[in-house]
Every structure is written in structure tokens, then in C-alpha cells.
């Protein structure tokens, strides 16, 4: 993974907020791409499987770029950052670590497509807003990465929005499933919009805009979409039911995911694979 910006000296006052922001960005994308990779081969139809996988690949590619920025700040190599950190060290939003549905990805997966499309759409929109803000980050290497990552988000958004709108408009069982999925996603969506305990410092150092500004922007953009499918969503629906991932609170789903995704890596972390 070669990314721009080598080891730029960074003000020690800024560093904790900067690294926390980067961990959030990297861990969010990494764990959601992992959940996407479990879907591979199991989507509602073959053409969609192929399209979805491209999005998971893009997203994992973005995680790799953010881990590279952390690595450049002396946080360790990208593969150990991705594979070797405990759940308590991870700063991803809890929503993104939740399982795709009941069952194991190899034998009994009964994955929930409604949850997949809603989680991905809502997240992609939040990510787009965050990255648009990061394009003006005072940390230049991050601003440069944000500019690149942003390019691929148009497709992600178009793709997920198309699915969400069509399934919402389909009525019947689909509508019921979609509303349940939206409820589930919103119940933990505060965890996605949250920027953690150093949010204030992040804004003060112009690393990213204020958490509240980004949240209002998300609500503003989503409002007409919700209206177009006759759904009423209020700010009060957005919660953090299963904990705040930004401070290392996670579910058992993340532990299971980590043991799977690091299974081979852990055989010998020093070996070349």
C-alpha cells in the first residue's frame, strides 16, 4: 500500500485527536467491508453479488488507506492494525460490526438483505458527508486521501439508494422488513455519527467539522429521501443502543468477527503471507 505523505512531524497536541479520527475512519470501513465480504456469493441474485463485492473491495481499500495514514504516524504496520488489535482497541461504530443476520457465513447464513441495504445506504451517506468535510482537513495527508476516497462514494450511494427506495416502495412484506431494518439501523446510528470523546479537539484543530454540524447535514440530506418513501424519521429515533464503539464498547459480534478475520494472520504474524 503506498500512499502519499511520509512521516510528517505532527504537533503532539493534535496527535491524539488525529489518531482517534483516523482509527474511526479505518475501523468503520474495515469492519463493514468484512461484513460485506461475508455476503459474497449469497446476495439476492448473481448480478448484485458482483456489484456488492466491488463496493466491499472499495471500502476495504479505503480502510487500507486510512490504516496507512496511521502507520505513517508510527502506529504500526497496516496489517497488524487491521488484524491484531483487540476489540477494546477498535473505534468502529457498533452498527457496522453487527452480524449480517442469523447463521454462519459458510453453512447456514440467513442474511438480512433489508438490513444490508439500509445499513450500507445510511452509512455511505454519513461517510460521504464526513469525507466532504475532511477534504478541508488541516491535516493535509488526510485531506488528500479524503479527496480520493470521495470519488468512489458516488457509486456506493447510487447503488444503495436505488435498492432502499425500490424495496421501500414495493410495499407488503418488503416494506415491513425494510421498516424493521431502518429501526434497527437508527437505533445504533448515533454511534456512526459520533466522533468520540475527542470530537471537540478534532473540530478545534480543524481536522474535521463539528459532530453536530455533520449530523444535521445527514438529517438534512436524508429528509427528502425519507419523505419520498413516506417514512417519518425524527432525530429522536437516532440512538446508540448497543454501546459507543468510539470508546471501545463493542458487542460479541465483533469478537467473533476478529477471530475469523485474523485466523490465518495469527498463525504467524511475523510470517510473510
Amino acid at each position: 500500500m503506498n500512499e502519499p505523505a511520509g512521516n510528517i512531524p505532527i504537533d503532539s497536541k493534535i496527535k491524539p485527536a488525529l489518531t482517534s479520527l483516523l482509527y474511526q475512519l479505518a475501523d468503520d470501513d474495515f469492519i463493514l467491508a468484512y461484513r460485506g465480504s461475508e455476503w459474497l456469493g449469497l446476495a439476492p441474485h448473481i448480478e448484485e453479488d458482483v456489484a456488492f463485492s466491488s463496493i466491499s473491495q472499495d471500502t476495504m481499500g479505503h480502510a487500507a488507506m486510512f490504516y496507512q495514514l496511521l502507520s505513517n504516524l508510527g502506529e504500526g504496520n497496516v496489517d497488524s492494525l487491521a488484524h491484531a488489535r483487540e476489540a477494546s482497541e477498535r473505534q468502529n461504530a457498533v452498527l457496522l460490526e453487527l452480524v449480517n443476520g442469523p447463521g454462519h457465513y459458510l453453512s447456514s447464513a440467513q442474511y438480512d438483505w433489508a438490513f444490508a441495504v439500509v445499513r450500507n445506504y445510511f452509512y455511505s451517506q454519513a461517510k460521504k458527508i464526513r469525507l466532504d468535510s475532511l477534504k478541508n482537513s488541516s491535516y493535509q495527508p488526510l485531506a488528500e486521501v479524503a479527496l480520493k476516497v470521495n470519488m468512489e462514494l458516488y457509486y456506493h450511494l447510487l447503488h444503495w439508494k436505488t435498492w432502499v427506495i425500490q424495496l421501500m416502495q414495493a410495499g407488503g412484506e418488503a416494506r415491513t422488513r425494510m421498516e424493521a431494518a431502518i429501526g434497527k439501523v437508527l437505533a445504533d446510528f448515533e454511534g456512526v455519527l459520533n466522533l468520540g470523546p475527542l470530537a471537540k479537539e478534532m473540530a478545534e484543530h480543524d481536522l474535521v467539522e463539528k459532530e453536530e454540524v455533520l449530523k444535521q447535514r445527514w438529517l438534512f440530506i436524508m429528509k427528502p429521501v425519507f419523505e419520498s418513501v413516506n417514512l417519518s424519521v425524527s432525530e429522536a429515533d437516532i440512538a446508540m443502543k448497543n454501546g459507543n464503539g468510539r470508546i471501545g464498547e463493542h458487542t460479541a459480534d465483533l469478537d467473533d468477527a476478529l477471530s475469523t478475520l485474523s485466523e490465518v494472520y495469527s498463525i504467524n504474524p511475523a510470517a510473510s503471507w
Binding site: 500500500m1 468484512y34 465480504s37 461475508e38 459474497l40 456469493g41 448473481i46 453479488d49 458482483v50 463485492s53 466491488s54 466491499s56 473491495q57 476495504m60 481499500g61 480502510a63 487500507a64 490504516y67 497496516v78 496489517d79 487491521a82 488484524h83 457465513y105 459458510l106 468477527a257 475469523t260 478475520l261 485466523e263 490465518v264 494472520y265 498463525i267 503471507w273
Partner: peptide, 23 residues
Amino acid sequence: EWVPKAPSLKRKLGIMAKVQDEM
């Protein structure tokens, strides 16, 4: 089986792309 388990970011991406091609 090996897509989520691949031992590095590069391998995870490579095998994801490969299995995607199979589909």
C-alpha cells in the same frame, strides 16, 4: 471460506476480487 480469513489486507482484497470474478 477464505475471503474473510485471508491473512493480510492485500490478500483479503485479492481473494475478494477473485471470488467476485467467479460469480
